[in-house]
Nucleic acid binder design. Structure first.
Length: 264
DNA sequence: GTTTACCGTGCTGTTACGTCA
DNA sequence: TATGACGTAACAGCACGGTAA
């Protein structure tokens, strides 16, 4: 399980979307209320569905908690619990609960520490927040999904920039090839130039090293292969967090973006 | 040691609801 | 007031790993 989790986790370690949690939560819950409950009329969602049954089976604590728990800080009436309200409807319509600012904050802080919960932690957190364990579980699931989505967007943006810069680089190189060919066709110009620098490729770091002397004037008149080889595809001001071929340097079984078949 | 059924959990996609402009 | 966009809680279905028989 952890393997899959780590695989699905972004391969661009340098970018951590978790560091700055999206303001959506606070934006959603905050700004409209100061008492912590954004929707006083909201009720606890109905208990239905396979997952709820599964969790409810043999879990008396859950039932007790369901009966006793209220939402939005527990200050609401709802008499026998908002939950029973939904059940009394006899419908499958789910009533949505808006988590309070405090609840969201605690969940967010817990998520920063660990983005998954074991049953004990889940129960403890649910008790602390006056929520059902199922709600805590759902919140963590959705939070992980949001994190992944955010990370995917960041990765996508990075790859887009990478592609743009490489396209530009390719254009430049093709232009230089044309210029070099033109030089080759006019030998009298070619003869006056300094001997070309011998370049060797380092097998480990895949970088080009200069292995013979070359005057600085040559680089002024000719395109510097060294500078070209070490050129950053992201541009001079953007630090590249990974090699040009990210797959080559990574110990992963499956490449991201390979589709659903990337699962083991 | 291998197989099988069951259970718990995570992920992904979808739905439904609440809020806001 | 009505409405569409957006965020998100809740759900369904699937896959996978662990475990006991």
């Amino acid at each position: 399980m952890t393997d899959r989790t780590s695989e699905t986790r972004s391969f661009f370690r340098g970018i951590d979307v978790n560091a700055a949690p999206p303001p959506s939560l606070t934006a959603a819950t905050g700004g409209d209320d100061e008492n912590g409950v954004s929707s006083p009329n909201s009720t606890v969602s109905s208990i239905s569905g396979k997952r709820s049954e599964r969790e409810g089976n043999g879990d008396d604590a859950n039932a007790v908690e369901r009966a006793s728990c209220s939402q939005g800080g527990g200050s609401d009436d709802d008499g026998g619990g908002g939950d029973g309200d939904a059940d009394a409807d006899g419908e499958n319509s789910r009533k949505k609960l808006r988590l309070s600012k405090e609840q969201a904050l605690v969940l967010e802080e817990t998520f920063k520490d660990h983005n998954t919960l074991n049953p004990k932690q889940k129960q403890a957190l649910a008790n602390q927040l006056n929520l059902r364990p199922r709600q805590v579980e759902v919140w963590f699931q959705n939070r992980r999904a949001r994190t992944k989505l955010k990370q995917t967007e960041v990765d996508c943006e990075y790859l887009k920039r990478c592609c743009e810069n490489l396209t530009e680089e390719n254009k430049r190189l093709q232009k230089e090839v044309q210029e070099l060919r033109a030089l080759k066709l006019s030998p009298h110009l070619y003869m006056h130039m300094n001997p070309p620098t011998t370049l060797t490729m380092c097998p480990s770091c895949e970088r080009v090293a200069v292995s013979s002397t070359s005057s600085s004037s040559s680089s002024a008149t000719m395109p510097s292969a060294l500078s070209l080889a070490n050129r950053n595809p992201l541009g001079p001001n953007i630090q590249r967090p990974m090699p040009i071929n990210p797959w080559a340097a990574m110990q992963i079984k499956h490449r991201p973006f390979d589709g659903p078949s990337s699962r083991p």
